[in-house]
């Protein structure tokens, strides 16, 4: 059987790619995708921990499902905000949205 640590390393790698994406990408949609990547890394972790540590208790799986739901609602709100900005400025690049100083 594949050891637990492999899953954890995979999840950590995906999480780091997500964090890098948030910090490095300038397109708001790409940033949102990177955030989703982070949440998916969490799901891999949760399911792997559930399988290897407490397969008798369903809480890990239930938790992963909750993370899906939250990720979906986050995407809904986020895309709505991004579209609302795009309609007026025809850009979703974070650096061009700079009325307020960072």
């Amino acid at each position: 059987m594949i050891p637990l640590s492999w899953y954890l390393i995979l999840a950590a790698a995906i999480f780091c790619i997500g964090v890098y994406g948030v910090l490095a990408r300038r397109n708001a949609v790409a940033i949102l995708m990177s955030i989703e990547l982070m949440l998916n890394a969490v799901n891999i972790n949760l399911v792997a921990f559930w399988r290897y540590m407490s397969p008798g208790v369903i809480s890990g799986q239930a938790f992963a499902v909750m993370v899906f739901a939250v990720a979906a609602s986050e995407a809904a709100v986020g895309l709505a905000l991004i579209i609302s900005i795009y309609r007026r400025r025809f850009t979703v690049a974070a650096e061009e949205i700079d009325m307020l100083k960072w």
Partner: peptide
């Protein structure tokens, strides 16, 4: 964007503690 980024950190931490 920053709030969602932050909650990504919270949930990753929660997953590690679960582990």
């Amino acid at each position: 964007l920053l709030g969602a980024f932050a909650s990504g950190f919270v949930i990753y931490g929660v997953a590690l503690i679960y582990g």
